[in-house]
Amino acid sequence: MRLNPASEFLSLSLSIPLSPLSLSLYTSPPPSLSSPVSLSGSAIKRIPLLLNRRAAPFFSPSFTVIKFVDIHDTHGNLQRQQAVYFSAEMSYRGVGFGGADSPPSIQRETMTEIEGVPIISSVTQSWDQIRNFKARPDDVLIATYPKAGTTWMVEIVDCIMNDGDTERCKRSPTHDRAPFMELNPPKPFPSGLQQLASMASPRLVKTHLPVQLVPQSFWENDCKVIYVARNAKDNLVSYYHFQHMNQGLPETGSWEHYISSFLSGQVPWGSWFDHVIGWWESKAEHRVLYLFYEDLKEDPAREIERVARFLGKGLDQAVIDRITDHTSFSQMKENPMANYSTLPAFIFNQAVSPFMRKGTVGDWKQHFTVSQSERFDEEYRRRLAGTSLRFRTEL
């Protein structure tokens, strides 16, 4: 069986003996290699290609992962592992494939600590491997506090590293192009470390770790790091909505409770204050380009050019303009390779809140009461009093 690299989806229709159940399988990320690939399987009845992503019922809550398959080139070389999901179209009740009565689900994580930093428990399970991660000299590390513009920066950097070839940047989802280093999901999903180990150089590496927890190999290899910081109020609002829709993160509690948790640093990946200040101070010792979300919103072309210069890429204005358009919020919101719509709803429930929600500066005004804002500002002034770090909360 050969897959066309130009196709967005592979649909496999299977016949299941002794039951009136039919399964449709889809691969994600979609095959997008430079040459045809071979895929082996069993009980395959037919292989229609679905060129329109929206034609597939991919947002069904009945999706779950069943296995990973190896994708080889025509010479037998392993190219990648492909995640395979299934959707069960039930013709009777009671079949145990996560049907309408029992959709697949994952458990929300509990919180623990690593060196005093609150973090989800799955990270601690692979902490020795994360701490001893072997960075390569040409790795580019994209570091942020959660929901500070991570996906936006990954898309920008991927475009720059591919010389503005925006079509190539649609080859696979964000989480495949820039693996999340400390991600350690339940099987059969691969961990960030497993993804990175199989990647060719140069690699984009994503992390939310505070600077003191970053593996030493990044500093020993003098790797380039791009850090994006976002003003605390908007960051809190975005993180609150994200924790609601991300079915693997701990419950948020009420809005009022979440404000208290955020101010005290009792949220996954710890204190926003410690995070942004620690990375700000790291610029004195390491090759860190420190960017602000608000500056990117104000003049994206200017900031994209800064990133390109930092990466040693000389891009002409036409390329900068093309990247600016491709990485605009409106474009990324509709881009299935950037908006995380390739993840099933039992992981990212975008009916609760879209992954690409608003992408604005100042949305906090729609959430904070006057008293909540005053309380927040008091703690903010106290925590940032001894630093030169300054943020804008509106444009």
Rank of each mutant, 00 (worst) to 15 (best):
A6E: 05
A6M: 06
E8L: 14
L10Y: 11
S15V: 10
P29R: 05
S32A: 06
S35N: 13
S38V: 12
K45F: 05
L51C: 10
N52E: 13
R53G: 12
F59D: 12
F63K: 12
I66W: 01
D73P: 14
D73R: 10
H75D: 11
R80Y: 06
A83G: 15
A88V: 06
S91V: 08
G99K: 13
P103V: 02
I130P: 10
P137K: 03
T144W: 03
K147S: 05
D158F: 04
T174M: 12
F180D: 10
E182C: 12
E182G: 10
L183Q: 15
P190F: 00
L196G: 10
A197Q: 03
P210D: 07
V211R: 07
V214T: 00
P215D: 03
Q216T: 14
L236R: 02
E251V: 07
W269N: 12
V276P: 14
R287C: 14
F292Y: 05
L311N: 11
L311G: 15
T324M: 14
T327Y: 04
N349W: 04
Q350F: 01
V352K: 12
V352Q: 11
R357A: 06
G359C: 08
K365H: 08
R381E: 07
R383D: 00
L389C: 06
R390H: 07
R392L: 08
